[in-house]
């Protein structure tokens, strides 16, 4: 699903985001990215959605190089990838329904199909009754559910989550993780950057530990332990 070959990312200001890392993530895997701030977690996810280009190395997603990818192909890549952010990033001027529908509309999905798929996915993340609300009327947990619904409504093969529970209380975090885990069970590959040791220790998934831009540990059923 995802392959990094000797990827280095050096920012313009000289900061080393990633330092010559190679890693492979298979289809259907659930991977946690952990490590202290500035370890390279965000760089990792940003490179995956082609928000940034690596300075050196090659990245393959679904067997296709996203480094050589042309500018106009980027939207197509992003439609294959669901993305969840710590700050939700919902369109504030659109309702819950419209936010989720937008992910389908960018692909030119007909209205009839949008009307069929959006309610069912809202039901799936447990906010079927809030479809007419605006994001500001919702709690953080509810907003993150909307974001997840938007991320999975077009059945992406990969879901990337950047600190999805960072703004949520522990109980809500657990519920969000349950949803993400269910998405994984349907066959979607999950890459999740997190600081939440509780979640990582509880879920027992593959854990990649980053520090100063390099992979210091890669455990198949790991815990939240930097091992430094």
């Amino acid at each position: 699903m995802i392959q990094f070959f000797n990827v280095t990312k050096k920012y313009d200001n000289g900061t080393l985001g990633l330092d010559n890392i190679s890693v492979s993530i298979d289809k259907g895997e659930f991977v946690f990215l952990v490590g202290p701030s500035g370890a390279g977690k965000s760089t990792f996810t940003r490179l995956l959605i082609r928000e940034a280009l690596p300075t050196k190395g090659q990245i393959m997603v679904d067997g296709k190089s996203i480094v050589r990818m042309k500018q106009r192909e980027i939207p197509h890549l992003r439609r294959k990838i669901g993305f969840i952010f710590q700050d939700f990033r919902l369109l504030q001027d659109r309702t819950v329904y419209e936010n989720v529908a937008f992910a389908l509309e960018v692909m030119g999905t007909p209205v009839s199909e949008v009307k069929r798929r959006v309610p069912s996915v809202l039901e799936l993340v447990g906010i079927g009754d809030k479809y007419d609300c605006f994001p500001e009327e919702l709690s953080g947990g509810e907003q993150q559910r909307v974001a997840i619904a938007r991320a999975i409504v077009n059945n992406p093969s990969l879901l990337i989550a950047d600190e999805p529970t960072g703004n949520l209380d522990p109980d809500t975090s657990l519920e969000i993780m349950k949803i993400i885990n269910n998405v994984n069970k349907r066959g979607t590959t999950i890459v999740m950057a997190t600081h939440d040791s509780d979640i990582v220790n509880r879920m027992r998934k593959r854990v990649i530990v980053l520090n100063k831009g390099t992979i210091v540990r890669d455990d198949v059923k790991g815990g939240y332990n930097y091992g430094l």
Partner: peptide, 18 residues
């Protein structure tokens, strides 16, 4: 005032012309 919205649309996979 909708700079952020435009940004989000790009993340969701909207083409520029869309």
């Amino acid at each position: 005032t909708r700079k952020k919205e435009i940004n989000i649309m790009k993340y969701v996979g909207a083409a520029n012309w869309f």
